[in-house]
Design a binder for these strands. Structure first.
Lengths: 352, 352
DNA sequence: CTGAAAGCGCTTACAG
DNA sequence: CTGAAAGCGCTTACAG
């Protein structure tokens, strides 16, 4: 595969009739090169399709690349923990390239925390950013700031296609919604009613959840769904309230045969079903967080749709690394596989 | 994360009161070191938990590592092509470490071709082996040979736990079988009959397929299955024959509502169903090869169980690389996730 | 604007 | 058995 004789910087220098210093300056666009020499070197570079020896470069270079990772704070076992772990893994794998990664956390239920975090970042020392895209507007304005400074950034979790992010890494939420529907309708008829649970919180509903709902609805339409969808709003921290609501709705609408929840909190409904000892409701949710895994194992959650959070974190850092260090062109859209996890296969999904 | 001041080989030398050459010799066990110096250096090495700078090492080193990949020859779009691509990808990622990978192909339907291939390998120049474990006995004897020469090897596709492979990379076939059953029984009742198709060939049936059948049967038992399984033997290259057999069995047993095939050839049955215009049979198979993907899209295959072949190839080379170059300790069992692919999500599964 | 030289941390002959 | 020295391909001050 690899040619035995790679072309080196001294070879380029010789061919262009200049010194290695000059070649280095044009390669890195450091200026201080005469126009004549610049084009001369450039020509040779193109001609021989010069590819720098990254190993030598990183050994010689003292430059440290600062990557800032901005994600929500998480409790152990939560979704964002896995993204964070993927980041750590990448840092380990690419430490040879002098990466320094700083993680900054905000409160995912508090937009102001995100805002003040962004305000405090000293962008002068930042070479790249990995960004969890929970708050649409703030992400957009911050992106413009990064654009202005030509700092590359990648989005994880969900995409905002309008922005000039170097890449998005995550799954297609619309399809994620379709798949949830598809799985449910293996177990129920198209006349059955469906419960959709949401979590009330102060901020706007996540783009992610909205898109999933759209996908879900699209599927319903495509199969000419005859039943009803009922929506309930649950509270993350008030189980008594939740149980009352759920008792009421199930009692009122006994034809509800399935439930879906478009974020990682399926366990709230799942635990209710477990306590009420109801295995007749097919529940589908998202993300293999620990509480969900437990209920999947016990059969109260039918399936979880997973977004490979570890890989999101890993690839995010990897792409930034490739961009910063190899100056490579990077595909700007890396849709990850959407995994369907059931009782039998979820245990294997930790790999990588 | 990473200490600014990594300890270098000159630091070790100084601490042990020897030269860098001596330190290098003990690190690499090259001999030519007095016992006194050896222990002295070793002690320091332990004490400071020396971790070599791999970048510097690979820049300085002229050693090329030869890895041999022994897999079946494949037609475009087949399972092993993806394993092969994963290998290529790894070679690209790790080229900086002077990898040279040679791929050797045998005929997966002809044990003798594997045997003669093994006989012709000149192991003197081989540093590591990646091995597709199709032929049980030959793999075992070859493994012993590699053991004797202390050449590390990894298995892909299916495991042979008794052997001393450095690692196995692939999925748990037993669970793979359970999952197939689980998916089918979403669509059929436990009274329905099931068709199991096999492909006749000269060699023994693959371990993989046997294990999947066991897992499948275990699931049947667990749900107290009441129906019948009918087995047919199909021929890869004789469609007329296959159609006759399939026509006959479906006619004779109209209660067959599902079909399963424990290798990547589900498309043979799938195409039959398509030609006969039968969407009432739930078909589940393995591996996202092109022909299967097409039928999944069209709805004649219900689901495919995937083994991440690309990742198998990639991780195989990566682990060998880490073992050879970093001398690292490697976990010897890397069970990969078992992916459930349906019409909606299979398109995203190419990533990585 | 330009080039010669030192240095990154390791390996590799080569004297002794 | 041991150490001093050159070299891997690049970057980084530093004179000019």
């Amino acid at each position: 595969m690899s040619n035995c004789k790679e072309i080196r910087i001294v070879d380029i220098a010789k061919m262009a009739g200049v010194s290695v210093g000059t070649v280095d300056r044009v390669i890195h666009n450091r200026g201080r090169v005469s126009a004549a020499n610049y084009t001369r070197v450039m020509t040779v570079l193109k001609e021989v399709d010069y590819r720098p020896n990254m190993v030598a470069r990183s050994l010689a270079s003292k430059k440290v690349y600062h990557i800032v990772v901005i994600i929500p704070a998480y409790a152990p076992g939560e979704y964002w923990e896995y993204i964070s772990r993927g980041v750590d893994r990448a840092v380990e794998d690419f430490r040879q390239y002098h990466l320094s990664v700083t993680k900054l956390y905000f409160d995912q239920f508090n937009e102001a925390s995100f805002e003040s975090l962004l305000r405090d970042i000293k962008l002068d020392e930042v070479d790249g950013v990995l960004l969890g895209t929970l708050f649409y507007d703030l992400v957009c304005s911050f992106s413009k700031e990064l654009d202005a400074r030509k700092i590359p950034y990648v989005y994880v979790d969900s995409d905002i296609p309008g922005e000039r992010r170097m890449a998005f890494i995550g799954t297609d939420s619309l399809v994620g919604g379709q798949i949830a529907a598809r799985i449910l309708f293996r177990n129920i008829t198209k006349e059955a009613d469906i419960l959709m649970a949401r979590i009330v919180h102060t901020g706007a509903e996540s783009t992610q959840a909205k898109n999933r709902l759209s996908g879900f609805n699209a599927y319903l339409t495509s199969i000419d769904y005859k039943g009803c969808m009922y929506r309930v709003d649950l509270d993350l921290s008030d189980d008594r309230h939740n149980y009352e609501i759920l008792d009421a709705i199930f009692h009122e609408h006994p034809n509800i045969k399935a439930a879906v929840i478009f974020n990682s909190k399926a366990y709230i409904v799942g635990e209710y079903l477990k306590n009420r000892n109801r295995k007749d409701i097919s529940l589908v949710g998202y993300d293999l967080i620990e509480k969900n895994a437990q209920l999947l194992e016990e059969g109260y959650i039918e399936a979880l749709i997973d977004q490979r959070p570890r890989m999101q974190g890993y690839m995010g850092v990897k792409l930034l690394c490739e961009r910063l260090i190899l100056n490579g062109e990077i595909g700007n859209n890396n849709l990850l596989p959407i995994d369907i996890l059931i009782k039998e296969n979820y245990k294997f999904s930790e790999t990588y």
